[in-house]
């Protein structure tokens, strides 16, 4: 057996310590920024490649439930899909870009920055960061923590959680770390705090018992948070529970946006 090399381990730990120190004092920022400038386009390309495979497999599973005739047709469709895979990806990007432009051309007073999704965090089942997405825009593009992130239809998909120099981390609306001042489009325009629930749904907290909330009510941003305007669509109420001994109602909403396979998103900047 080989002897344990204490010298190497000591030198290694000193190097790691030094790198951590230099990172926190910003000395490594040009290096990190340079790396990201070079590799972010590649990361975006890899991400959309993976997303295309994801989409392809997702389609496969859904179609498995159809009748035999549809399965026959599916065979033909698969061949066509495989042939058009790269074209489809470009089309999706194109359509997403057009949607974004359409949404913002209707809201001429809005400032925004469009970003490519470069990674979805999925490296561990334990980490609370699972489900977060990384985008290729950061502080240098005017992005900072707390800004709202939208999809091509102007639906809220999450918030900026951490902004780096050239990349940012977005927590999706279903994440427990995503908290949004929200309101319901019901009779009383009830306000509450929308908070992700188990990575699946959105819980609307602090809704008093007296408020009349119905399944299907729209959940929108309330405008009570700085830099996030009112009226941005988040989702629809899917469940309402009024416990007799509770102060607040338990209101649950489903996100309106499809949070899988995000390719291009927009970060809404303050006016």
């Amino acid at each position: 057996m080989k002897k344990f090399n204490f010298k190497l381990i000591a030198f290694f730990l000193a190097t790691v310590g030094l790198l951590i120190f230099l990172h926190f004092f910003g000395v490594l920022r040009p290096l990190e920024s340079g790396f990201q400038t070079i590799f972010n386009p590649l990361a975006s390309f890899f991400q959309s490649g993976g997303a295309s495979i994801n989409l392809f497999f997702h389609d496969q599973i859904a179609r498995g439930e159809f009748s035999e005739k549809i399965r026959d047709l599916e065979g033909h469709l698969q061949i066509a899909e495989a042939e058009n895979a790269s074209l489809k990806r470009l089309e999706e990007e194109n359509s997403s870009l057009r949607q974004h432009l359409k949404f913002f051309s209707e809201r001429k007073d809005s400032r925004y920055v469009m970003a490519n999704v470069i990674a979805s965090e999925a490296f561990s089942g334990v980490s609370e960061n699972v489900g977060d997405i990384l985008i290729d825009k950061g502080v240098k593009d005017g992005v900072y923590e707390g800004l709202v992130v939208l999809n091509g239809n102007g639906v809220v998909i999450g918030k900026i959680y951490q902004a780096g120099e050239r990349t940012s981390r977005v927590v999706l609306t279903v994440s427990s770390r995503c908290r949004l001042a929200a309101g319901l489009q019901n009779k009383n325009h009830t306000v509450g705090l929308a908070e992700g629930n188990l990575g699946l749904t959105i819980a609307i907290n602090f809704v008093p018992q007296a408020e009349e909330v119905k399944i299907g009510d729209n959940l929108v941003t309330s405008g009570l948070e700085p830099d996030i305007p009112a009226g941005l669509f988040i989702g629809k109420v899917s469940d309402v529970y009024r416990g007799s001994n509770e102060i607040w109602q338990k209101v649950t909403a489903e996100p309106a946006a499809n949070l899988d396979n995000l390719i291009i998103v927009s970060v809404l900047l303050p006016r």
């Binding site: 790396f35 590649l42 975006s44 495979i53 994801n54 965090e121 999925a122 490296f123």
Partner: peptide, 19 residues
């Protein structure tokens, strides 16, 4: 560099059972 970017971007965006 490529292997790290590939693992971060590509592997992370695969269907959950391939991640």
């Amino acid at each position: 560099s490529l292997l790290a970017v590939w693992q971060i971007s590509f592997a992370g965006s695969l269907p959950w059972y391939l991640r």
